[in-house]
Write a protein that binds this DNA or RNA. Structure first.
Lengths: 254, 254
DNA sequence: TGTACATCAGTGAACGCGCGTTCACTGATGTAC
DNA sequence: TGTACATCAGTGAACGCGCGTTCACTGATGTAC
């Protein structure tokens, strides 16, 4: 480990080749991200990336075996970036669950607004002809896991509002009750999922509430970024804030 | 008006040319929709459409002056189709508002599931390089109008649950209250919008609730169609049903 | 009813462009002795 | 420390493909007299 050219984790020396390789890999992805903005995922072109980097197109094949592999790398990076933002905001220890929830929602929205094309890449229409490989699944689940984890933590600490806290009228029409116990089919899916996640202490209706809130959150962000609010609720800040409060209530954090 | 070749609305005679033209216009859009499925909006190609119809590509320019105009026609058709489905379900007279709400939500989801590529075209990531013209705005607002109209009708008939019906705990933390009065910024946007729509009788928080519910609805459908539920809540029927009930409550129809 | 003219749908060739991927190669960097 | 060999990043040409759009044209359909 001779200072300058020591490898980060291992003690192996990093050769100039290795350094050049990581650097160029980074530059390729950076340029590709820039091109997502102009042309979208379908329009991402190895030739254009190479051209912009001053290389010949065939040289890129030393770094990514195909266009789809480059796309996969971008997708994983994007999921990791938004996932990390959500985790960082959600896992602030000490703060009440409700505040952590709001912080996570805002962190996700902020990331989406500052990276709209990467957001579209992962939460927009599927890229035709592209099948996401297994390696994207882990990164993709970081955001929902962070949100569900929040609810699980609240359940563990007794912060979670049960259905009995929902007031008299919420106890009304049985299965239609939006905050009451979930139906059998849904409960089965929920318990299976929470078992898979190792979160057995979270009650099914809270998990379901968190998942529904998760979809709402991204519905809101997608409408904002994809232009459905043009001419009505734009800017969408106030609408978003209110939705976040409602979501917290749905997830039992209200 | 000599029976067979009388024009539909006007009394003008329809020539063979006119009939051929409407027929081919229909066939072009039909084939283009088929290609959306394979290649997505970016991949929609005039040449491929022409090839499939047994025409030469330049012939299509008699029908659409450019690729983007064909895309616009598809977008308008899609908005109209989902809008009509929503209206038909929402405007059933007599039924209670809550049921009409659920019917509209299910009608929209059903349309989306049976036309996933058209759904992606209008609610997915924006097509790079394509600017939606003004003519799409009217069709695009049919769905939100149908939903807001439902809430407005409920308000007019006294069916709408006010904030006071939300139970003791909902009256809690002032501005954070998810069902209480909306803040000033949001109220201003809401009243401006309802004035523009000519729906002055609907209170701002009900309008805001309807809009938030609208975003949630499409968040749910997008996640279902775009694959975010793969491996967890799939099929999403039970989750969707529950979300719809919660949405009705948020919109004041619960 | 028949004829002369106008309209317009569809053809075929062309322009100029971009794409992903393969392959044999040169020459620089790294490694084992 | 120096040399022989192996590794591998990047080149340049090529393959075969598809695209949107323009343009001069042919020939069928429609219309006015």
């Amino acid at each position: 480990m001779t200072s300058a050219n020591a490898a980060q984790g291992t003690g192996r020396a990093r050769t100039a080749r290795e350094r050049a390789r990581t650097e160029l890999t980074r530059e390729i992805k950076e340029e590709a991200r820039r091109q997502l903005a102009d042309a979208g995922a379908n329009g991402l072109s190895l030739r254009a990336v190479a051209r912009e980097l001053g290389m010949v197109s065939s040289a890129l094949y030393r770094y990514y075996p195909s266009r789809d592999d480059l796309l996969t790398a971008l997708i994983i990076d994007a999921y990791d970036a938004v996932g990390e933002a959500a985790e960082r905001a959600a896992l602030t220890p000490g703060a009440p669950a409700r505040d952590r929830w709001a912080a996570a929602c805002h962190a996700i929205r902020d990331w989406a607004r500052s990276h709209p094309h990467e957001y579209a890449l992962i939460y927009g229409s599927p890229v035709p002809g592209y099948r996401a490989p297994q390696s994207t699944v882990g990164p993709a689940s970081r955001v929902p896991l962070a949100l569900v984890g929040l609810v699980a933590a609240a359940a563990a600490s007794g912060e979670l509002a049960g259905p009995e806290a929902a007031g008299p009228e919420a106890a009304g029409p049985g299965a239609l009750d939006p905050r009451g116990p979930v139906g059998a089919a849904l409960a089965a899916q929920a318990t299976e999922l929470s078992a898979a996640l190792g979160l057995t202490e979270v009650p099914p209706q809270a998990l379901v509430g968190a998942v529904i809130a998760w979809t709402q959150l991204f519905g809101m962000i997608s409408f904002e970024l994809f232009g459905q609010f043009v001419g009505s609720f734009e800017p969408a800040d106030a609408l978003f804030d209110r939705a976040v409060c409602q979501l917290a209530a749905l997830a039992g954090l209200g």
